Simulated scan of single mutants.
Amino acid sequence: MGRVTARRRVLRVREGHASYRPDTLAAEEPMEIRVGGRPLAVTMRTPGDDFDLAAGFLVSEGVLHRAGDVAGIRYCAGATADGGNTYNVVDVGLAPGVAAPDPSLERNFYTTSSCGLCGKAGLDAVRTTAAWSVAEDPLRVGTDVLAALPDRLRAAQRVFDSTGGLHAAGLFTADGELLCLREDVGRHNAVDKVVGHALRSGLLPLRGSVLMVSGRASFELVQKAVMAGIPLLAAVSAPSSLAADLAADSGLTLVGFLRGTSMNVYAGDERVHHAAEAGRHSGGGS
């Protein structure tokens, strides 16, 4: 299995004093995803939870919808100097009757750890039809619950403490209970790992849940949330305009700049309630 972290000797300068010391870095290695032995894509990721990553990627592509769609996932033998396995090639076998990826998806490009699915030609190619609708999800979440999520996400990150260089995605209940957390150098990989875990555990669609991410909310992350049936996506940083458009079109609640008690709700604000609102509705407001 690949390493999650790597050590490197660095020159450290602090207040005019220089010294050499070891530093811990988040590992980043390529992983090729195959379906039925046929290469589909290569992504740069932090090793670990690779089967979840491959499964989640295929959920976002509309290939997988439930645990029974997967016949098996395995590492393929890789070429190393000693003839061992690099653990950087994962092959997903589809169950009988499950359609293989559309040939248009077999684009033989690689996705970087920061940009997501960079090789897609246009918006129509990215707007994959979701198996479930999030628009009618009755989820309601208090602003007090949302405000606590970034600290809960950060507290659960194990590798970030030693590297400072990993994104995280966490799946929470409406009450703020952490269900699953994954880390990766790529925010979209972290989300795929969460979704893949849910798929393999038979939990899709993830109705009534909240997805919290440590970075910004890109179009790809909104798409992945919608494809997994998640009705609310929250991020500590800003969303893109396309992310907000897709959230509004899909009926997903999108929260950005979630820092302390401050936040912006860019779409689906009917799912977010706060104490003042509750007071007005109960007659306690002035």
Rank of each mutant, 00 (worst) to 15 (best):
R66A: 13
R8W: 12
V210A: 10
S237P: 00
V4W: 03
T129S: 14
A243I: 00
V92H: 07
A225M: 03
A130T: 05
S250L: 09
G170V: 01
L178M: 03
D82N: 05
V98G: 02
N264I: 08
P30Q: 06
A77K: 15
D192G: 04
R45V: 15
S209N: 03
H197N: 06
R34Y: 09
L58I: 05
G196H: 06
A156K: 02
L171R: 01
A135H: 04
A198V: 00
G251C: 09
P150Q: 13
D137N: 10
S104T: 05
R187G: 13
E277D: 12
S286G: 15
L146E: 06
F109E: 15
L211S: 02
M31T: 05
F109K: 11
T112N: 01
P96H: 05
L242I: 11
P39T: 00
V185W: 00
L181K: 03
G62H: 10
V191I: 14
I230F: 13
M44E: 14
A77V: 10
R45H: 06
A55F: 15
A95V: 06
A198Y: 13
A198R: 00
R38M: 02
G208A: 03
H188E: 12
S286Q: 12
G284V: 03
M227L: 07
F51W: 11
D151A: 14
V145K: 09
M44Q: 13
G229R: 02
L232T: 09
T261E: 13
S250R: 08
T80G: 06
A99C: 10
H197Y: 12
R280E: 05
I230M: 07
K193T: 07
A155M: 03
L204M: 09
E15H: 12
T261D: 15
P138H: 05
R8V: 14
G72I: 04
G56M: 10
V134A: 14
A81E: 13
L206F: 07
H197M: 02
M227A: 14
G196W: 03
V194S: 03
L11F: 08
V210N: 03
L117A: 11
H188C: 06
D50W: 06
S250P: 08
R9K: 06
R3K: 12
V226C: 04
N88T: 05
V89I: 14
M31Q: 13
A278R: 13
G284F: 08
G84Q: 09
E29N: 07
T173D: 07
P205R: 02
G78A: 08
F257M: 08
S60I: 01
V98R: 10
A174P: 05
E183S: 12
V35M: 01
G283E: 06
G97P: 05
T111P: 02
V210K: 01
G48N: 04
A244C: 12
A67Y: 01
A168M: 02
A235L: 00
R271F: 04
G62M: 14
R9A: 08
H281K: 15
D124S: 04
K193E: 10
A18E: 11
D175G: 15
E136C: 07
G285N: 14
F172D: 04
L246G: 01
N189A: 13
L149I: 13
R140T: 15
A67Q: 11
T86D: 09
G36I: 03
A267Q: 04
